[in-house]
Design a protein around this nucleic acid. Structure first.
Lengths: 341, 341
DNA sequence: TGACGGTAGTAAACCGTTTTAGTAAAGGCC
DNA sequence: GGCCTTTACTAAAACGGTTTACTACCGTCA
C-alpha cells in the first residue's frame, strides 16, 4: 500500500550513491564488508525492491516471453504452456499468456506487445490458415518468434512440429491391420498444415492397402469438441457406415464419441476410433481412446528453450524440428464386427 | 530487428514536440487536421510503437495482472485462468501466469513481482496449508490481491469460493438415497479449507442418516490423479469394501477409477463414485462421472473483475463470495448391488 | 619522489515515455 | 485598440533504475 521506496532512499540511508547500490545489487562490484552491510541493512529496513519497469527500461530487456494459444483451457495448449512456463522461469523470464480464440486480430495484438518491448519473444500457436498477416509479423520480428504445432506459411522462424504424416499413416495402418476397409477420416480445418498432413497419412495408408475411400469419408471440422460433434453426424449417416474412424485430434475423437453415444453406436463393437494427441485423460474415457500420442511436453520445452536462446543472442535459423509420435493402443479399436463387415 | 523508433523521432518528422505526439496519441488533445495528419504519417512511416516499459514507468502502472496456480496444465486451473485472461484483456490488461507446483517459495516469488510493480494485482490460488507467510504477503499487498478457490487463513483479501459443505452433503445424500450405507470419502490434504468443508458435508449427511463411518473410511490425499490413485488403494482393501466413494475432486475420482479398473472393480455395479468440480471432460469418461459441478468460469470471472476494480480504485473489502454448486448425475452411480449390500 | 596500480566509490548520462505548467498567437467582443 | 478566451502547441520535470567514465585516495616500488 504505502509508497515503494527507491534506490535513492536506500543509497541515502546507506550513505552511498545510487550507483553503488545498483552495482552492488546487480553483482557488478565488490564492496568492503562495512559498506555492503550498510546497504544490505538499508534494503532490509526500507523493504526495497527495484522497480520492474524502470529496470526493464534501463536494461532494454523485458525479461518476459509471451505465448499465444487458441484456447488456454484446452488441455493440449495448457500442457504446452505449462512446459513453457517451467523453462521460462528457470531462465529468469516471466510468461505472459494470451488466448486468441483463433481470431487473427488477437494474435496480431500479441505482436504489438512484442513490438512495444513488453515481451522479448513470442511462442506462436495458431489453429487456422494465415492470410499473410501473421507471416508478415513473424518475419518482421525475426529472431524473436518461434512457431509451434501449426505452420504459418512463409514466415521466417524456427518451427516445432510433430510427424503428422507418419502419425496419420500409423493410425490408419492399425485399423487396416485389424481388418477394417471402410475407414473414414474426420480432421482439422481446410488449409491447415497439420490437418493436411494427417489426412495425407490416412490417404496414403489407404491407397497402399488398395483402398480408395469415397470423398464423403473425409470430413473437415475444427480441432474442438463441439464443432466436431456436429461434423461427425455426416459420417454416421453414410450407409453402409464406416467401421472405423481416424479422428484428427483427441478433441475431434471426443466429438465422435458423443455422437456415437447419442446414436447408440458402441465403440469399439460397432465402430473403431483412433484419435490424435495422446492427452493424459484419454486412457480414462469410456472406452479408453486409442490415439497417436504427441510428445507435448517436449514440444513446449524445445520451443521455449530455443526462443530464449535466440533472444539471448543465439544464432537464428528458420529450421523445422519434427518430433516423433507414438501410437498408444487402447480399448477403442477392435476388428470390425461380422455384421458390419 | 532494426532499432525501434522513438517518440522523439516521430515528433521531429512531424515537426512537433514529443509532448504533442504523446498527448495526441493518448487522446488527451485534439489537433488541427493538418498537424494530426503529419503525426499519423510519421507514426506510420517510422512504424512507431510506444515503448511499453517507458510508458508503464511513466504512468506508474503495469497494466498487467498475474495469476498463480498450482499447475496450469490442470484443466480446473486452466479454465479459471482462461476466464481471467478474457476479463483482463477486455479491461486492457495482460495476464502473466505462474505455475507454483504448490511450492510456497514459488508463490512468494509472485509477490515479489507485485512488489516490484511488474504486475498491478495478483489472483492467488493455492492448494496447501499456509504457514503464515502467504497471509503476510497478501496483507502487505492489501487491495492488490484476491484469493480464489482455496483459503489463505487470516489474509486481508476478497475471497471467491464455492459452497463446499453443501456440495459434500449433496453428493453424499445422493448416495444415501440410492441405498448406500458404506460410503467412504477420499478428499484433499489435511488442513486445506475446501477439503475440510467437503469432508464435513459428507460427515454431516452421514450422521443425519444415522451412519457413523469408521475412521478408515476417510482418506486424505492431494487434489491430483497420481497421489489419489495411490491413496485410493487403502479403500479397496477394506473388507467389506465401501459400496460408494465420494471423491473430493474430479482428479481424485479419476484416481479411484484407475484403481478400480486395475482391480476389476466395476463402476457403478460394484462401486458408486461421485467427484467434485464438474470438469467438462467427465461426461465422456467410462463411465460418465457423477460430480458436484463448480461454476468454474464464474469463479475466474468474478475474481478477475473484482481484482481489476480494486486496482482501479474501487473499494477494498475482505469479503467472501460463496458460489453455489450443482450436482450433475451420470452413470457412475447406482444402487448398491445385492451382493455388496 | 614520482609513477603506477588498485580500491572505493561518484557524477552524470541515458532508457523512452507521460504530464504539468506555461506561452505565443489568433480570434472575438466591446 | 485593448482585453479576454481559446487554440495549438512546447519546455522541462518527472518516473526509477543502470551504466559509463571518471576521480580521489592509498600503498607500493624503482
Amino acid at each position: 500500500m504505502s509508497r515503494r521506496s527507491t534506490i535513492a532512499e536506500v543509497a541515502k540511508r546507506a550513505g552511498v550513491s545510487p550507483a553503488a547500490v545498483s552495482r552492488w545489487l546487480n553483482g557488478g562490484i565488490t564492496l568492503p564488508t562495512k559498506t555492503a552491510d550498510r546497504i544490505r541493512e538499508a534494503v532490509r529496513i526500507l523493504d526495497y525492491r527495484p522497480n520492474a519497469q524502470a529496470r526493464r527500461l534501463s536494461r532494454g530487456r523485458a525479461e518476459a516471453i509471451g505465448i499465444v494459444v487458441p484456447d488456454i483451457a484446452n488441455p493440449f495448449f495448457a500442457l504446452i504452456a505449462g512446459e513453457a512456463e517451467r523453462v521460462a522461469v528457470e531462465a529468469g523470464y516471466d510468461l505472459v499468456i494470451w488466448s486468441s480464440r483463433n481470431r487473427i486480430e488477437r494474435e496480431l495484438a500479441c505482436f504489438e506487445r512484442l513490438a512495444s518491448g513488453f515481451i522479448d519473444g513470442l511462442m506462436l500457436i495458431t489453429n487456422h490458415e494465415d492470410d499473410g498477416r501473421l507471416a508478415d509479423q513473424v518475419t518482421r520480428h525475426k529472431g524473436r518468434v518461434v512457431i509451434v504445432d501449426e505452420d504459418v506459411r512463409d514466415a521466417a522462424a524456427p518451427r516445432f512440429f510433430v510427424e503428422n504424416f507418419a502419425g496419420g499413416r500409423t493410425a490408419t495402418e492399425l485399423l487396416i491391420d485389424l481388418g477394417h476397409r471402410r475407414i473414414a477420416h474426420i480432421g482439422g480445418p481446410v488449409g491447415v498444415m497439420s490437418a493436411i498432413e494427417r489426412a495425407s497419412g490416412w490417404l496414403s495408408a489407404m491407397h497402399d492397402a488398395g483402398i480408395d475411400p469415397p470423398d464423403r469419408f473425409h470430413v473437415f471440422t475444427e480441432y474442438e469438441v463441439e464443432p466436431a460433434t456436429k461434423a461427425a453426424e455426416a459420417l454416421f449417416e453414410i450407409s453402409p457406415r464406416p467401421t472405423a474412424i481416424f479422428a484428427g485430434s483427441d478433441a475431434i475423437a471426443l466429438g465422435v464419441m458423443i455422437q456415437a453415444r447419442g446414436r447408440g453406436v458402441s465403440i469399439p463393437n460397432d465402430l473403431s476410433l483412433v484419435g490424435f494427441d495422446g492427452l493424459p485423460i484419454i486412457e480414462l474415457l469410456g472406452p479408453a481412446l486409442t490415439s497417436v500420442a504427441q510428445p507435448i511436453d517436449a514440444l513446449g520445452r524445445f520451443a521455449a528453450e530455443r526462443l530464449i536462446a535466440m533472444i539471448e543472442g543465439g544464432p537464428f535459423e528458420a529450421d523445422t524440428l519434427r518430433l516423433p509420435v507414438r501410437l498408444v493402443q487402447s480399448a477403442s479399436v477392435a476388428p470390425p464386427s461380422a455384421k458390419a463387415a
